[in-house]
Amino acid sequence: MIPKIIQGGNFSDHRGTISYVNDFSFEDIKRFYIISNSDENPIRAWQGHKLDAKNFYCLNGSFKIHYVKIDNWENPSKDLAIETVIVSDLDSKIVHIPAGYANAIESLETNSKLISFSTLPLSNVSEDDVRYDSDYWEING
């Protein structure tokens, strides 16, 4: 499986605005959490997931979501291609990153909030989560 964008939309009228992603299924979702990076450390990097698929949706502000396909969990190549997607609270979309990738979350604005929907129960996270140094792959603007 490869990462993909699940595009949604917005509807506005005199009552306000509704943002939606109708093509996203919650069928495999086991939990969610909200990410708010500090202004001092706007990049949360690099978290790899052997089993867990991540689905990111921007609630407030904007983010760059960087990801790499891991070639070797114990010693991944430093030359892996970094892909980047920008998400914003103005553009209703979900970024789906399947298992087998590492990601980095970069806040672009103060008070940005990103919700992450995960497919792995919390009881299985210890066998899945792989952390790499924040500078293992260089993120370029």
Rank of each mutant, 00 (worst) to 15 (best):
I2H: 15
P3A: 00
P3L: 01
I5M: 11
G9V: 06
D13C: 02
R15C: 06
T17A: 04
S19P: 01
V21M: 04
S25T: 07
F26S: 08
E27M: 08
E27C: 06
Y33H: 06
S36A: 13
N37L: 08
S38V: 07
N41H: 15
A45N: 10
W46R: 08
Q47H: 15
Q47G: 14
Q47I: 11
H49P: 00
L51P: 08
L51S: 11
A53K: 09
A53Y: 02
N55A: 00
F56K: 06
Y57Q: 03
Y57V: 04
Y57W: 08
N60Y: 09
G61M: 01
F63E: 07
F63N: 10
F63V: 10
K64M: 13
H66Y: 11
Y67A: 03
Y67C: 08
V68T: 09
K69S: 11
I70K: 05
D71V: 07
N72Y: 02
W73F: 00
E74H: 10
D79F: 12
D79L: 13
L80H: 05
I82D: 05
I82N: 09
I82R: 09
V85R: 13
S88N: 11
D89F: 02
S92Y: 06
V95Q: 10
H96M: 13
I97S: 00
G100W: 01
G100C: 03
G100E: 03
Y101H: 04
A102K: 06
A102S: 10
N103L: 14
L108P: 05
N111T: 05
S112K: 03
K113R: 12
L114E: 03
T119H: 01
L120A: 00
P121V: 07
L122D: 12
V125P: 03
S126E: 13
E127G: 11
D129V: 13
D129W: 10
V130K: 09
D133M: 10
S134L: 12
Y136V: 10
W137M: 09
E138P: 00
E138S: 14
E138W: 07
I139A: 09
G141T: 15
G141A: 14
